[in-house]
Computed example of a mutant assay.
Amino acid sequence: MMNEKLTRKKNRKPKIVVIGGGTGLPVILAGLRAKNADVTAIVTVADDGGSSGDLRRQVNAVPPGDIRNVLVSLSDIPEMQKEIFQYRFAVEDQSLAGHSIGNLIISAMAEMKGNIYEAIQVLGKMMMIDGHVYPAAEEPLELHAVFKDGTQVSGESSIAKHRKMIDHVFVTKLDGSKDVKAARKVVSAILNADMVVLGPGSLYTSILPNLMIPEISDAIKKTQANVVYICNIMTQLGETENFSDANHLEVLHRHMNQKFVDTVLVNIGQVPENYIDTEKYDEYLVQVEHDFNGLKKEASMVISNDFLELRDNGVFHDKEKVVEELFKISFDVQYYGRKFETNIDTI
């Protein structure tokens, strides 16, 4: 009977919600999709740089860039169609310079449907995505940072430029109102998940903008899902300079006014000296330092491994290794209960 119960639970698709933005999110989503998880992506809408920033200013659109990359990562359409969707116009193309076709399509669909939520659902069907994609909110948000010296700056793309220590961040609507609502189905997805994954991604500008939406914050505090944080490998210019892995968790918990991360994944692989192309990857500084005693104060379980992937003179998380660890956790969650208690560290 016990073996039958184990087999039945092991064969059920784990419900995994991944929250964030930037380049790390689609990589993890693609890996989870390949492992046949029931995946939901909740994507930040506070980006104001590049093509996404131009479109949100020109047509009052929700920034589409992170949404575009997530749709592609979960899509079953042929590679050629993905390449077309991702194609970015050259700098000499005047008004279209820097815009990707996918960004334009998402913005156009949002205008046709009257909102970004329905636009994403229609595009999800067209692109045959395996999973669910929801914006964190159904309107563009403004990210604000308050620095340790008391000064404040608005705009996601402006924060790092100041090179100041950040005290905290918060989000508003574009008119300054703090009455920010989560998009449809976001809260229910978090509450019904087996696992909620944060990161990898920029701490202050990719992860926290989602958590600063009150309904999302409340749902993460209430969920019985195991909440997993994938700690960044490198410190980031103007955001996490001189941070240890424990400092990342401390910031998350301080913003939410309670310890809510159950499990943290930490890379212990060493980045070779002078390996990174500092011109191409100019936002990354040095490898995040380890503070295992600090980590154990912040999370029930610390899982450390060589999660490092070195390619193109850049530093990335090894998708297969990270996803393998997430699936091990998800199996324990399904068998022992979603918010299982443990003090076991694999370091």
Rank of each mutant, 00 (worst) to 15 (best):
E239F: 02
E239A: 08
T240A: 05
F243Q: 07
S244H: 01
D245R: 12
N247A: 14
N247S: 15
N247R: 12
N247W: 02
H248Y: 12
L249G: 08
L249P: 11
L249N: 06
E250F: 15
L252T: 03
H253A: 09
H253K: 04
R254D: 15
R254A: 14
R254W: 11
H255D: 07
H255G: 05
M256I: 06
N257L: 12
N257G: 07
Q258S: 09
K259Y: 09
K259G: 06
F260P: 05
F260T: 07
F260W: 07
V261K: 14
V261H: 15
D262T: 13
D262P: 14
T263K: 13
L265N: 12
N267W: 00
I268R: 09
Q270D: 03
E273C: 01
E273M: 04
Y275W: 01
I276F: 01
T278G: 04
E279N: 06
E279A: 10
K280Q: 06
K280P: 00
D282F: 04
E283F: 06
E283V: 03
L285G: 00
V286P: 00
V286Q: 00
V288A: 04
V288K: 05
E289S: 15
H290E: 15
D291W: 02
D291T: 02
D291Y: 05
D291F: 04
F292P: 13
N293Q: 14
K296P: 12
K297W: 08
K297L: 14
K297N: 15
E298L: 14
A299D: 11
S300Q: 12
V302W: 13
V302F: 07
I303H: 04
I303L: 15
S304Q: 05
S304W: 00
N305Q: 12
D306Y: 00
D306L: 03
D306E: 05
